[in-house]
Simulated assay, not measured.
Amino acid sequence: MNNGSMANFICELRKSKNMTQRQLGEKLNITDKAVSKWERGLGYPDVSILSSLAEVLGVTVNELLNGERSVALPLEANALIETTLQYANKVTFNKKESVKFVAKIAITVTCLLGIFVCMICDMAISGAFTWSLYPISAISFSWLIIIPLFQLKKNNVCMSLVSLSVFIIPFLFILNKIIGGTKFMLPLGIPVSLIAIAYMWTIYILASIKNSAKWNMAAISILLGIPVSLIINYIVAKFTNQPIINVWNILSWGIQVVLSIVLFFIGKKQEF
């Protein structure tokens, strides 16, 4: 397998299909920088995506590896290549699943350990569960949000957001109950939390749009943070009698605008 011929072959096939490096990368769930490295002969495609890359480019894996079309090999050799790739894909998948399993166990054990330590210290100091209820509820809430990221093979971020959306209000009610009830916790916490969650869902949807310029989506997400923070400031001002807009708000919004403009320009540059 010649790295130079393979690099040129991938570049020619991509251009013949009128695809940019970014578009090819999106089809394979990789970055355009990775595609650029292949085409410059600075690296090889990972074995786990060779089959998908060959399918997108309209060639066989054998042709892709050899860097040219119509390379005739005995049927047994082709079958061996496909079997080897399937095995490599399976090994890669199993490794990823093992890492995810270890991560879930480590996170769960750490959370349980934290809860246990808080309970023991609280009982030893106060003789009852008092301050420990705060970290216990916070740790439990965090576990419910983090675990979906490792639990599912697909849409794990979506399920983590679903978990956050479902449990945030009960979490606030529990905190309010532990505190003993205040006039600020629920009236202020619920609307602010719902606005923040809506903003996160918006970012997730923008990031999930296929065939979209990711730099532009990132710029839009940052700009959307300005009206979101303004709404939150308005809600907080109703309870605290503080001004809705201050110098720090103006400064942070200015930085967000500048950053968004920079991202838009980067996105435009990537198109060419």
Rank of each mutant, 00 (worst) to 15 (best):
G225D: 08
W248N: 13
K183H: 06
S137Q: 00
T182A: 03
G4E: 10
Y199R: 07
M185F: 04
K269Y: 12
M19C: 10
F171N: 00
N233Q: 08
L65Q: 12
L112I: 04
L57D: 07
P170Y: 04
S252P: 03
V71G: 07
A77S: 05
N156R: 14
F116D: 05
S208K: 15
I232G: 00
L53G: 11
S52F: 05
K17C: 04
V247K: 12
L24R: 01
G225W: 08
K238T: 07
I136L: 00
S16H: 09
F265Q: 09
G25I: 04
D32C: 06
N211Q: 11
G25K: 08
Q151I: 03
V236K: 03
T110A: 04
E39L: 06
L161C: 04
P227Q: 12
D46Q: 15
L172Q: 04
F116A: 14
G4M: 12
V192W: 00
C158S: 11
T110C: 02
I178T: 01
E55Q: 12
L50I: 14
K177F: 15
N211S: 13
L161P: 02
S52D: 15
Q151R: 02
L75V: 13
G225A: 08
V162M: 06
I168D: 05
I169N: 03
I205M: 07
A106I: 05
M217S: 12
I232P: 00
T182E: 09
V61T: 07
L224P: 07
M19Q: 10
I232R: 01
V262A: 10
A213N: 15
I266T: 05
I190V: 11
A106H: 06
V157I: 09
F141A: 00
I179W: 02
D46M: 13
C121M: 13
K153V: 06
V262K: 10
S36Q: 10
F265R: 11
D46C: 13
K96C: 04
I145R: 02
S132F: 00
K210S: 13
L251I: 13
F141G: 00
L259R: 06
P45K: 08
S98M: 09
L194P: 01
K95L: 15
C121D: 15
C118R: 00
M1Q: 06
A88R: 10
T202E: 04
K153A: 12
F9W: 06
S208Y: 06
A79N: 13
A196T: 05
V258W: 11
L186N: 01
W253V: 02
A198V: 02
V247M: 09
N249P: 01
F129A: 06
W248G: 06
L64Q: 05
L57C: 11
L112N: 00
Q86S: 12
Y204H: 15
R69M: 10
I245V: 10
M217P: 04
N176C: 02
L42D: 14
E26L: 11
A124M: 08
I244M: 09
N211R: 12
W201D: 03
M6I: 09
V258T: 13
V166W: 08
K268S: 05
I245Q: 02
L75N: 09
K153N: 13
V35M: 05
P135E: 00
S5E: 14
K238C: 08
I115E: 01
I179V: 07
E12D: 15
S16F: 10
I107Q: 05
D122S: 02
A77H: 13
N78R: 08
V236S: 08
L175D: 01
D46V: 12
L149H: 06
L230A: 15
P191Q: 05
R22K: 14
